Amino acid sequence: MTLYRKIQAVERVFKGLEKDVAAFKHVTRLECLVGCGKCCNKPDISASPLEFLPFAYHLYKRGLALEYLDRIKDHPNSNCIVLSPLLIPDKPGFCSEYPYRGLICRLFGFSAALNKYGNPELVTCKSIKETYPDAVEKANSHIMEGKDTPIMRHYYFKLQSIDGDLCSKLMPINKAIEEALKIVLSYYAYRRPRSA
């Protein structure tokens, strides 16, 4: 599979996930707190290079890939490089590249993980639990009743089927972005990017 086809496949997974999360949020009434961003404000978020290939390709097409590589080299152990310190007007939060965020960014707060017994449990933050206890209770009931719920593992399996090696390499989020950028830059060093 060509790199461009991998990028398209990842984008299809994300598009399906967006629909699933929107439906889950609609039914449960779960939502993020306006102006929060605490979940993103951590340097230890893990991700894979595969989930950031669409972002890397987006930066490459805009001529910003090398600039972002330099930014990562200057701040290797910091919070995600696309996290804005201020709330961005007309954006859903603090992410300056929200449409290109990774899988964990899309899943956290509005999905379930399987516990050691194989049962799904809501994965959300303390702030949502404390602010919207009724919605959290509704989400937990929804999950326990076996209704449609985004399950983290299922989406990681979908990515795994696109490229098992790139998906299984979990690393700090900036390192994952850096690896994705290097993959895109090396692939297109002697090729022209597709017009998309």
Rank of each mutant, 00 (worst) to 15 (best):
S84I: 02
G93V: 07
Y60M: 01
A189F: 12
E179I: 08
E31M: 11
G93I: 05
K19W: 08
E51P: 06
Y98I: 13
T131I: 07
E130R: 07
G16T: 13
L53P: 10
I72Q: 05
I45K: 12
V13D: 01
V27A: 13
P43K: 00
P120V: 01
I45F: 09
L87P: 00
F157Q: 10
K169F: 11
A139V: 15
P49Q: 06
E145H: 15
S48Y: 01
P43T: 09
L83I: 12
D148H: 09
K158N: 01
K129A: 06
S46M: 09
V136N: 06
S78T: 12
K91V: 15
S96E: 13
L159S: 02
I177P: 08
E51R: 00
K138S: 09
Y190K: 14
P54S: 07
S141H: 14
L66G: 08
S84W: 04
F55K: 13
Y117Q: 14
K158R: 14
L83V: 15
P150Y: 00
K182W: 01
Y132M: 02
H58M: 08
R153M: 07
E178I: 05
R71V: 12
L50P: 09
A180R: 07
S127P: 08
E145T: 04
C105H: 00
D74I: 09
S127M: 13
I183S: 05
Y98Q: 03
I88L: 11
K25N: 02
E121N: 06
L86S: 00
S127R: 05
S186N: 12
G118V: 04
G146C: 10
E31H: 15
A47W: 08
A23Q: 10
K169A: 12
G37C: 12
L59F: 01
K147L: 15
N41L: 13
H75M: 13
P193V: 12
K15W: 10
R153T: 10
A9I: 04
L103T: 09
L53E: 03
R192V: 15
D74E: 15
T28G: 10
K116W: 07
V34T: 12
I88C: 11
P99R: 05
L122E: 05
I104F: 02
T28S: 04
K73I: 11
E51T: 05
L3A: 08
E67N: 11
G146F: 06
G164H: 11
Y57K: 00
M152G: 11
S48K: 02
L3Y: 12
K25E: 02
R62Q: 09
D90Y: 04
G146P: 09
P99W: 01
D74V: 12
F94S: 10
P76W: 08
C167D: 13
I72H: 03
R153I: 05
L33G: 01
D74A: 13
N140E: 11
H75W: 11
L181G: 00
G164L: 07
C36L: 12
S141G: 10
R153V: 13
T149H: 05
K129M: 06
K175H: 04
M152T: 15
V184G: 00
Q160C: 09
S48T: 08
I151R: 02
L33A: 09
P89K: 03
S78I: 00
R29F: 07
S127A: 11
V184F: 04
S195N: 10
Y4Q: 14
P89T: 01
L86M: 11
Y117S: 14
V123K: 00
L87A: 09
C39V: 08
